[in-house]
Amino acid sequence: MDIGFDGLRNPEKVAQDAMVSFKTALWFWMKNVHQVMQQGFGATIRAINGDECNGNRSDVVNNRVRYYKDYCNQFGVNPGNNLSC
């Protein structure tokens, strides 16, 4: 109920209502990702896609890191340390 609807009883509302979808994404980011951003991109991978970090999906993690570094390069920003989980 943090964002004003009961997602357990009405999960399809996330797909049906753009505002609920946006609020859900923002809620997830603030509850799970925001606090680990200073730990590096690898920590955000772990927070969002933790199952990829168990070693079974190193190809997927490597692709995420490659894309991230490419985007950082395009924007002229340093990708930082701790890029992989």
Rank of each mutant, 00 (worst) to 15 (best):
N56P: 01
V77N: 08
Y68K: 03
W29R: 07
F75P: 01
H34E: 14
K31N: 14
K23D: 13
G55M: 11
G40R: 15
G55T: 09
M19W: 13
V36W: 13
R66L: 15
G80E: 04
N73P: 04
T24Q: 08
I48E: 09
E52L: 15
D51M: 09
A18K: 12
N32I: 08
N82P: 00
C72I: 02
V60N: 12
E52W: 13
F41K: 09
W29M: 04
A47I: 06
L83K: 01
T24W: 11
L8P: 02
V61W: 07
P11Y: 01
H34Q: 14
Q74G: 04
V33M: 10
N49F: 07
V77K: 09
A15P: 02
K31F: 08
L26F: 13
D70T: 06
A18F: 10
G50N: 08
D17E: 10
A18S: 13
S58F: 02
I48C: 05
S58L: 07
G40C: 15
V14S: 00
N78H: 13
P79W: 02
L83A: 08
H34T: 06
D51H: 11
V14D: 02
F22D: 08
Q16K: 07
S84I: 10
R57A: 11
N78F: 09
T44S: 14
G76W: 01
K31E: 15
P11V: 03
N54C: 02
Q38K: 14
G55V: 11
S21K: 13
V20D: 07
V20Y: 07
I45G: 11
K13Q: 12
P79E: 05
V77F: 10
G42C: 15
R64D: 10
G76D: 04
G80W: 04
L83Q: 03
F75E: 05
Q35L: 05
Q16V: 05
V36C: 14
S84A: 13
P11I: 03
S58E: 12
F41N: 12
F41D: 09
L8Y: 07
F22T: 10
Q39L: 15
E52H: 12
S84W: 00
Q39V: 09
V20E: 10
R57H: 09
Q16T: 01
T24K: 10
G55F: 14
P11K: 03
A43Y: 08
K23E: 13
N82V: 05
D70W: 05
G7N: 02
N63G: 11
M37Y: 12
C72S: 04
Q38M: 10
G42L: 14
Q35I: 03
D59C: 02
D59L: 00
E12G: 01
Q39R: 15
Q39N: 15
F41E: 11
D6Q: 10
V33H: 10
N82S: 14
K23N: 12
D17I: 08
C53P: 00
K69C: 15
W27S: 14
G76A: 04
C72Y: 03
P79G: 11
Y71P: 03
Q38I: 11
K13Y: 00
Y71Q: 07
M30S: 09
V61C: 15
A25N: 11
M37N: 10
Y67K: 14
Y67G: 08
F22K: 13
V33D: 08
G76I: 04
A25P: 00
S21T: 07
D59M: 03
H34D: 13
